[in-house]
Amino acid sequence: MPQFFSNKRLIVLLVSIIILVALIGTSMKERDALTMPEQFFKDSIGWLQSIFYKPANSVAGLFESIGDMKDMYEENELLKSRLNEFVAVSEELKTVKKENADLKSELNIDSSTGLSNYQTFHANMIARSPDRWNDLLTIDKGEQDGVQADMAVATPDGLIGKVKNVQPFSSTVQLISDVDRTNRIAAMTQEDNNVFGTIEGYDTEKEVLLFSKIPVDTKVEKGQTVITAGNGGIFPRGIVIGEIVDIETDNVGTTQTAYVKPASDLYDINNVMIIDRGAQNVNPDEGEGEEE
């Protein structure tokens, strides 16, 4: 057996550790955009990934739908009975919406600048980081389709994360379960008297989000729904985040922290909605056309 670490090899090892530290240091910094080669690699591999992901997903979907088949009759009955309810509610919604618009125009509020005004467009997930340390998804819409960094990403159930990096034809989504200091969301409870706070991270053991900075004298209860508050600048108001499952007073005793169970399943994601708050320079139809 040759000598395990000769002097030369030891030096190579030390140099490569130094390079490793330097590389991690530079790539950990807050970056506005990725470098050109990174974008190129991510885009071309994203295209290959979508070739693999889509058939696998449809096979999995087929098995799932066979499994669902036996519940379908009962579900259908239930849905039919709910349909009448739906008609009534949608009529009511229409009148309320109209009334709201009338009142707003009477008060001279421009409806396009509201906190809860946003547009969505759809994208498909094409890959996910296999090591669970980084909770990143790749989706098949990029800068060409109007995606920009920091846009909110949701499934029909609720918020799942935000766009971290954009490439021309694909983008990377950081999930809310990713442990990151900068991953903060202004949130509030959806009740008569709104309680405001911040989502400040994720507890990987309990699989809950930490909804903190709630003043100690305000009352929050288990089962309340938490939504985005919209005053953080990035996210619009009204995207469902999750439901409060537990409440704890902090050590100091001035604020309390609620544990919020995310409304959307963070592992069973297929189609996502990208939520664009600006909505001026995005034409969703154009994005659809380019994909064909």
Binding site: L20, L23, I24, S27, F41, A127, W133, L136, K164, N165
Partner: peptide, 20 residues
């Protein structure tokens, strides 16, 4: 390096680990 670029946002972690 490929793993680092595509699946994480830190360059160098897996490059070093896998080769060592």
């Amino acid at each position: 390096l490929l793993h680092d670029l595509i699946y994480t946002d830190l360059v160098g972690v897996y490059m070093f680990g896998m080769s060592v």
